[in-house]
Write a protein that binds this DNA or RNA. Structure first.
Lengths: 338, 338
DNA sequence: TTGTACGCGTTATCAT
DNA sequence: ATGATAACGCGTACAA
């Protein structure tokens, strides 16, 4: 494969001059640049990023670890990260952890090997163990959507507690008292915070908190399906369900449909995070939508500030307000920002 | 950052011996291996992939170029590609072209620079121009979901013509005669083939083809929305709509909802490619679903066979049969394989 | 403005 | 089973 030397030879210059042309660095005589450029075109020369990075110790690459590339909430975040990174000349590597700590650990190792410049991660658990390797190798890191106990780093997330409270109050205001919560694992901070918001809303309205109405599983469709099936056997049956994320809600819809219950006529259903294409497909589902794209942009922004900085920066925390999207019936829609 | 020499020094061996240990290549005395491994752990050594690839001329990386990472059809393909690649020890880089030929060209260039070992691509147009650079650099390539005129390479796609015919016949069998088609651009082979299938079905049943019922736009939600809005103004109004992909169908639903038309009571709607979480959310939409995950796996498989081969392989074409998923009402479901 | 010498971290090749 | 040497393709540091 043709390399920088070949180009240099053809252009009658030293390799370093070619380097200066392709990197727009140093100063090159316009006439020389022209000759070099012609040689590049003639030989179809493509610079080798591997060698560039090896030498310069910068890959201009960041990584994004998220739990499910099939869930539009995460891919919207991914787009935000990608766009912000691309604007600064950085490429983004996407990694699917599937909520599996082992996969996460494997990817982190892979990324260290690839010498990425930084990482944006939605950790699978709030255990900082797997992240210590990053600290050791001084790899800049931004947490997105989820916190990790005792791990010092930048964080970008939504107001989970506030959003959950808002959503629960919405149900209460509609007259519901038997509100079931279907949330994610205890080891994920967002699941915890959303559960807290739920409890806070009930307390605020002096509704007794019944532990038998609180279900904890995974942030997955199947988990939502299974838990809602169990939940519907309860006597008395809850009149409303609060799904702590969109996939749980989809699983819930599936379970309700099987039982033959309609939303919202027979039972209310609300959820955290918008459902893909919900406005077109399922107009009856009130949700708290997070500004996913902005979250991604913000996280990448913080990361790249850190990469550009010459000295250490204090760690920062950005909490973005979610939006309550009330969908009552066709055409009627009401937005409120928290 | 600690490198292979540091490890070698601590273990009292030559760097190449460390190399043999980390790559499980050559043969190493168990005792030596043990000493090396201990040194690796002690120093927290992480091999530098850049240097490895530079020297070995293999990145163990393939790229997947697709049009929209937010569309679960594509991300499901992505999962198939990733999984198959990972099984062979390859990493996958995902690139979003957004159906934009310029973005595609930019990514192709980036990937050449990164010296990826091969590419799976859903091209944005059927113009082979942008792909010639791959040929020139002898970069193995597999087309997925879409063909490119005159470009010789492996291809994995669904039976677009057959699937579209099936879907159209389904509508005809339900009694529809005024069936509108909303398809994608002429420059994308799948859009063309689906339109052909539609026409073929009408011909077969001796229904006159009315050009005023055929709408061509983009494979995007907004395009579907706009075209269906226009389509509904037609007099007489079509009794059924065939959306040529899932995003067009979502846009169609949105438009129908605004007008106040219900599916399937007031107008029929079918589409190519399943709608995300459709079974849970929108149980009335009959679709032709492609085996996206399998398509991804197959494409990656062909690519990696090519990478593993020592000599040239003839180009291959795999056409996977789509599945007609008839969703008439809650709980009733009927599957037929083409 | 341009060039020389060297090193980035690793592995291919050949030798022992 | 282990090692010495060179090379992969490029950019830094310094010199001219």
């Amino acid at each position: 494969m043709v390399n920088i030397k070949d180009v240099a030879k053809l252009a009658g210059v030293a390799p370093i001059t070619v380097s200066r042309v392709i990197n727009h660095s140093g100063s090159v005589n316009p006439a020389t640049r022209e000759r070099v450029q012609r040689a590049i075109n003639e030989l179809h020369y493509v610079p080798n990023t591997l060698a560039q990075s090896l030498r310069s110790k910068q890959t201009h690459t960041i990584a994004l670890l998220l739990s499910d590339i099939t869930n539009p909430f995460w891919t919207t975040i991914a787009r935000g990260v990608e766009d912000a990174a691309a604007e600064k000349g950085f490429h983004t590597i996407l990694c699917n952890t599937d909520e599996d700590p082992e996969k996460e650990a494997t990817y982190l190792n892979l990324l260290l090997q690839r010498r990425v410049d930084g990482i944006v991660i939605a950790p699978t658990t709030n255990d900082k163990l797997r992240l210590t390797a990053l600290k050791r190798h001084q790899l800049p890191c931004v947490l997105i959507d989820r916190r990790v106990d005792g791990f010092k780093s930048d964080v970008v997330c939504g107001d989970n507690r506030g959003g959950a409270e808002l959503l629960t109050e919405h149900l209460i205001r509609l007259g519901h008292r038997q509100i079931a919560l279907v949330s994610g694992p205890h080891s994920i901070s967002s699941a915890e915070e959303r559960a807290e918001g739920y409890r806070a809303a009930l307390r605020k309205h002096r509704i007794p908190i019944e532990e038998s109405l609180i279900f904890r599983g995974e942030f997955k469709q199947d988990s939502g399906y299974q838990l809602v099936k169990r939940l519907l056997e309860r006597d008395p049956r809850p009149t409303a369900i609060f799904a702590a994320n969109n996939l749980i809600a989809v699983g819930a819809l599936q379970a309700l449909r099987e039982i033959g219950l309609r939303v919202p006529e027979d039972i209310a259903l609300v959820c955290f995070d918008d459902i893909p294409y919900a406005s077109a497909i399922e107009p009856f589902l009130t949700v708290v939508a997070q500004p996913a794209y902005e979250m991604g942009r913000t996280a990448a922004g913080l990361l790249m500030e850190r990469l550009a900085a010459t000295r250490n920066i204090r760690t920062r925390e950005v909490v973005l307000a979610p939006e309550l999207v009330v969908r009552q019936s066709c055409g009627q829609m009401h937005h409120t920002t928290v």
